[in-house]
Design a protein around this nucleic acid. Structure first.
Lengths: 112, 112
DNA sequence: CAGACGCATAGACAACTGTCAATGGAGTTG
DNA sequence: CAACTCCATTGACAGTTGTCTATGCGTCTG
């Protein structure tokens, strides 16, 4: 059951545990926070599967939420660098960012 | 620059966009929320690299945070099913959960 | 130009989150 | 048994987040 637990003598607590570089962690956390919402994760899933950019009005129709809320969620994804927007007339079309870091792309590959 | 945008006639907005199964999304979101914090992501990084279970007091020493806060973060990770605890005397040793879903394991592989 | 339409922004509010100090509980040691 | 150690839980509080309604801005059309 239990793997080999390190020896530890009372009062000798605690040896060190080295954290990771905080810059990388902060960057990852920003992406994770953007994805850690059902609506936004769904949005990313749709965009990942879509062959062409998707009009944001399609999301407004699909997710039982108000139009400003949908806009707010998409803005979060854009702010995190996950999606890009292209305007055509009065419409706004969103797609996955094309310059995604390989690690971020791998993340989406696993998630959605 | 712009990929081929779908034809759209005014007033015909909006065609459908099919979301993913919500059960899977909710499960993913739970894990993502657990990871979307610098301290917790660092913890996972340490545990992933550790050969043996790590005493939680080591985290208390490493992350300039109070002991209850460290305990709280670890509890979140445990609640999300990402880590397991084994008690030895008065000490609590944490390790990555050994029954992690392949997708979750792949997620950690990319992240930390 | 005037109205309609699509989208974003602003403001408000409840719910959730990260943090700490204080306390409690289980195990160890003298 | 009594004191001590390590860890978890509780309660409190500020900051963040998700949601809505209301408003504003740019574009198209009659």
């Amino acid at each position: 059951m239990k793997a080999s637990l390190p020896e530890r003598v009372k009062g000798v607590c605690c040896p060190v545990a080295i954290p990771l570089p905080s810059a990388r962690v902060d960057a990852s956390v920003e992406v994770l926070k953007a994805l850690a919402d059902p609506t936004r994760l769904q949005m990313i899933g749709v965009l990942k599967r879509a062959a062409d950019p998707v009009c944001i009005c399609d999301f407004t129709a699909a997710f039982d939420l108000s139009q400003p809320t949908i806009s707010h969620h998409m803005a979060k994804l854009k702010e995190a660098g996950l999606v890009e927007v292209s305007r055509v007339g009065i419409w706004a079309y969103y797609q996955l960012a094309r310059h995604l870091e390989p690690k971020t792309r791998a993340l989406l590959e696993v998630l959605v």
